[in-house]
Amino acid sequence: MSRVLIVADHDGAQLGAGVARCITAAGRLGGVAIHVAVLAAPAAAMAQQVAALAGVAKVLVVERAENARPLAAVLAPQVAKLAAGYDYVLGPSNTFGKDLMPRVAALLGVGQVSDLMSVEGPHTFKRPIYAGNAIITVESPVGTTLVATIRTASFAAAAVGGSAAIEAAGTDAELPTHTRFVSLSAANNDRPDLQSAPRVVSGGRALGSADNFKLIYALADRIGAAVGASRAAVDAGYVPSDMQVGQTGKIIAPALYMAIGISGAIQHLTGIKDARTIVAINKDAEAPIFEVADVGLIGDLFKVVPELTAALGG
């Protein structure tokens, strides 16, 4: 039986949404034992959350003060030691995994498959290139540990319903002191997380100002949605960069995506193409967003959005 080691993502405080997606991806490899490594401090609560996910056979916990913050330079040597004897080492393709996994791969002396989006066989995978404008099928060598980051939007989250064994794991890896955490200025947290929310409302440059974005917030709050933005809106300074949806921002797959005043540049579309239902509201009937939208409404957002928000009220 092949063995898979998944590195659980976290931001120092909370378990990330990526690990549950990686478990589903690992299951597609077929007939594998799935172990998840939690490197954190404190780690107990995260380990229990992971142990409760269906499909996990074992949770390896490395709790040490140095792991309080997920610093790639500190985590990578520990993951590389834990990886001995595993056929696959996976992490989510979010900023946690994108930062960490290539460093792990290099320490293991192997390459990496980035943004793995489908498992075609034990050594055959699909991944996007050119901002998702082409998909390649890649074959990895047999007998070599495969390191990959998992494109989280391509896999559903593993369900709760497991009871995996939790094991303390230590490594004698020497940890560097050359990298030190200074601060984290967290994004606005009173709305649902953009990466994992089932509903997302995004605004584009047509909003015209940071102040006008309140229309987007009001609609989002009315339907319990996370708020996103196009790169144009971010570049114009209307909203912070962690709200950017698209190839160079967040790639998301909500059940409902509402693109408001977003023209639909290719790099934005790449970030939403796995959304189940895309709604576009734009006054330009020729906007490319309408070519991919499931439901389109041509109109002035400054009229349509307040009307929509009001109609959905109470």
């Binding site: 601060s183 200025s185 967040k250």
Partner: peptide, 14 residues
């Protein structure tokens, strides 16, 4: 300062 999913993280490196 680096852009991470949860916001902006600042690190100090030698």
């Amino acid at each position: 300062t680096r852009e991470v999913d949860s916001g902006l993280e600042t690190l100090e490196v030698d």
